[in-house]
């Protein structure tokens, strides 16, 4: 159980600032997900926490004990930070058992016993202990990598896009298994990913990263519903951003007058709605028209265009059994308040 605290971390590669003064607190035993597009500095941040790289400025502290700063650097092998990389990074020359026992300081029998215990914990068959990594599937390799990291009882676990090499079905299952194992062990965890659904599902705390900085940090629901700007909103999922004139807790938008979540604001701005707030209803007097429809199994993606000169259009998923068809005129009803960007 370790609390991680980052303060104004900076790291520059050549002329590119990978991290431009990042600060973050990860409470003990909690799970934090860091999301952001590729190249935003997520992996650099993990490498600094693990001790593979040194920050140019700022500090990293575990439970108040500084492990990296301008003056001092605790080397990676003394930090006791577990890391599970994108491709598992198993040692190809060792068996699964030797991989898991790699960092443990114990005799062979103890290592083997612990390894089989951990195999069970991550949901793998003990019979696999004698196999070499190239005889395992991607998901199995990932679980072995987790077991290997857990074997050292790390103070902190770093997951660097550990599920992105897996195919969709396996991905959800592996994520669930990993998150259960980590919860049971009560290990402070940081997950880095570019997949927002994964981040939202996994984390207690979500940090959205952009160009070397956190644009927003908070609980997943809060960040999803009340993003700081349109870009953050879009990164976490489909968002419909509309121009609005706001006053007295209501916004005048192309969709009509909507309640907003910030009553104190007055003036011209933008508001955001999530697609799940909207319902379409066939109506000859409706203000919108359905354009293109794309069938994708259980749902249909429809293009909705509001009437009027340059009326905004957006895409929504509707149940594919819905009777709506291309060219239909619809009325849009909105549930909940629109989120206002200040």
């Amino acid at each position: 159980m370790t609390e991680l605290k980052l303060q104004s971390l900076k790291k520059t590669y050549g002329s590119v600032a990978a991290l431009a003064g990042v600060g973050l607190t990860v409470p003990s035993g909690s799970r934090t997900a860091i999301v952001g597009p590729s190249g935003c500095g997520k992996t650099t941040l993990l490498r600094l926490i693990a001790g593979f790289d040194t920050p140019d400025d700022g500090t990293i502290a575990f439970d108040g004990e500084t492990v990296a700063s301008f003056e001092e650097q605790v080397p990676a092998h003394r930090r006791n930070v577990g890391i599970v990389a994108q491709d598992g990074c198993l040692f190809p020359h060792l068996t699964v058992a030797d991989n898991i026992g790699f960092g443990m300081k114990a005799d062979r029998a103890t290592k083997l016993a612990k390894a089989s215990e951990l195999m069970e914990m991550v949901g793998l068959d003990r019979a696999m202990l004698s196999r070499k990594p190239d005889e395992l599937s991607g998901g199995q390799q990932q679980r072995v990598a987790l077991a290997r990291a857990l074997a050292c009882r790390p103070r902190l676990m770093l997951l660097d896009e550990p599920f992105s090499a897996l195919d969709t079905g396996l991905r959800a299952a592996t994520r669930k298994a990993v998150s259960e194992v980590l919860s049971a062990a009560g290990i402070t965890t940081i997950l880095v990913t570019h997949d927002q659904a994964e981040a939202l599902a996994f984390a207690d705390q979500l940090a959205v990263m952009r160009a070397g900085n956190f644009s927003q940090v908070g609980a997943p629901r809060q960040v999803y519903a009340r993003p700081v700007d349109a870009e953050t909103a879009m990164f976490l999922g489909e968002a419909i951003v509309l121009p609005a004139v706001v006053g007295q807790g209501r916004a005048d938008t192309p969709l009509g007058s909507l309640a907003v979540d910030d009553a104190s604001y007055t003036g011209k701005t933008q508001v955001m709605l999530r697609p799940e707030q909207m319902t379409l209803q066939q109506s000859d007097t409706g203000a919108a028209v359905i354009g293109e429809m794309v069938f994708s199994g259980s749902t249909c993606e429809v293009l909705v265009t509001l009437e009027g000169e340059g009326g905004p259009s957006f895409r929504l998923d509707i149940p594919s059994l819905s009777p709506l068809a291309s060219g239909d005129r619809v009325a849009i009803s909105v549930s909940g308040a629109a989120h206002l960007f200040r």
Partner: peptide, 22 residues
């Protein structure tokens, strides 16, 4: 792959041990 060496040192191996074992 330098990632393997990083991995080994995150598992607590000092540099010379990383060289010898990985």
């Amino acid at each position: 792959d330098p990632a393997l060496e990083d991995q080994a040192s995150s598992l607590g191996l000092p540099p010379f041990a990383v060289f010898r074992r990985v």
